[in-house]
């Protein structure tokens, strides 16, 4: 079985946000890395290959030329080859537009399973996997903490409100990783060396012939603003003082 692992190059969430005068992001602060959740999905793909359930892992990213770095990171973890759908507009693309592009890659590659993160930690849509499943007609197992392949089915354990839930899907399916799915490995030095020689194909989005307009995505970002900031309050010196403040100052007890 071939697995496609979709990975995103994301803005490091630890950067200090700065806006320009016209409510856009100040590009000088931006620092990028492989999306955390995608480390978990790539790890799961590699484990499925190690267990014999998968035969090939293809990493796919829609991103700028610089995103080759994040693809190589996934290759160093054990994926076999990479595909970069190259566009400088990647950071502006909404979930539907990206899902349509990825659906075209799925059509070309015909995987048995697609592994993704549940969330991109920068834009936080939590949507591309579900949308890709809809567009390809695949079943979906989102927020996975368990992914057990058995023949032509996969049982996905999902982290949901109120507890956990299992679903059984017929392959091909889209599975999106939550953070308790596994423990991602660090790429080894030999892994990093090998990754440099693994094939990485660059595709022009126009060649995928998807029904999209890169200049006018479905959702347009008009601008950004900073959320209300909280101030550090008072440090109290005892439990009695704390109870007093909660009763008499904050009036919440």
């Amino acid at each position: 079985m071939k697995i496609l692992a979709m990975v995103k190059r994301v803005v490091d969430p630890e950067v200090k946000v700065k806006l320009t005068g016209d409510a856009q992001l100040d590009p000088s602060i931006l620092d990028y890395k492989l999306n955390y959740f995608d480390e978990y999905s790539v790890e799961e793909a590699v484990r499925l290959k190690e267990s014999g359930a998968a035969s090939e892992i293809v990493v796919v990213c829609i991103g700028s030329g610089d995103a080759q770095k994040e693809i190589r990171t996934a290759l160093a973890m054990g994926a076999d080859r990479g595909i970069l759908v190259e566009t400088d507009e990647a950071d502006r693309l909404d979930s539907l537009t990206k899902a349509k592009l990825l659906a075209k890659v799925v059509e070309r590659e015909e995987p048995g399973m697609v592994l993704m993160g549940k969330l991109a930690v920068d834009s936080e849509s939590n949507a591309v996997g579900q949308m890709l499943a809809a567009l390809t007609g695949f079943a979906q197992g989102t927020f996975a903490f368990k992914c057990e392949v058995d023949g032509d089915t996969v049982t996905v354990g999902r982290e949901v409100d109120g507890g956990t839930s299992d679903v059984k899907l017929t392959l091909p399916a889209v599975v999106t990783a939550d953070l308790r799915l596994n423990e991602p490995r660090y790429a080894s030095l030999p892994g990093i060396m090998k990754a440099k020689k693994k094939p990485l194909e660059v595709i022009d989005p126009d060649d995928l012939d998807a029904d999209i307009d890169l200049d006018e995505p479905a959702i347009e970002i008009l601008g950004y603003e900073l959320p209300p900031q909280r101030e550090a309050g008072e440090i109290v010196d005892s439990v009695d003082a704390l109870i007093d403040r909660l009763k008499n100052k904050a009036k919440v007890l």
Partner: peptide, 10 residues
Amino acid sequence: IWSGNLIARV
């Protein structure tokens, strides 16, 4: 977005 550190208008 960004762990609540930024708000996008869309």
